[in-house]
Amino acid sequence: MKRYDCMKILASKLENELIILSLGGSVDEWYNAAPHMRKASLFQQQLGCVTPEAFGLSLGLPHRKIVALDTDGGLFFNLGILATLANEQPKNLFVVVWDNECYQSIGGPPTHTAAGIVDLSAIARGAGIEHAYTVTDLAVFDKLCDEGLRAEKLFIIVAKVDKTVSPGLKRKHSDGIEDKYVFVRYVEELEGVTIMGPSEHN
């Protein structure tokens, strides 16, 4: 599967969800695949932080579906989160792991899934996450996205995708700080809450 094709399928199903995503080629792909979700997406250059941060967001907003778009390299950086998620079983967290079997953004050296031995969804199931699936087919990806987004239970898809990045995409120009402020202001508006209020006085 091509990651960009998967993203367009997933994006077509999203409306009121919040998304936290990883670094690398998936940033510009998601920026283009889901233009209507840009403010609802936190673009994080944080290997190992994506799924934990999404879990934290799901704890604070238990009524809102939270989507983590992680990667094989990112998840390997902190496999322990699978054990924590298994114990905590957040009902509103949907995790997609783009498994391209390489560290694409630095030229493509292999990750630990490249040899065909290590299976991230099996690790997740072994941790105690019942609904963790490896997907290699777009139709199945489409079906499981529907299921995962509707499910009131923790749901993980490991999507086996090509190593290529979709060419000719518009680049995202903002940095992590701007992205954070945009995201926080969007959450404030969506949820009717104050995260960054005014200073005591001007």
Binding site: G48, P52, F55, G56, G60, N78, G80, T84
Partner: peptide, 26 residues
């Protein structure tokens, strides 16, 4: 207070960061 045992401190601070983004405090 929702207590969340974590597997390492890096995971824990990342979860706390996510909670901050929701408007809650961790």
């Amino acid at each position: 207070i929702r207590a969340i045992p974590v597997t390492n401190e890096g995971e824990g601070v990342a979860i706390c960061g996510g909670v901050y983004l929701s408007g809650k405090r961790a």
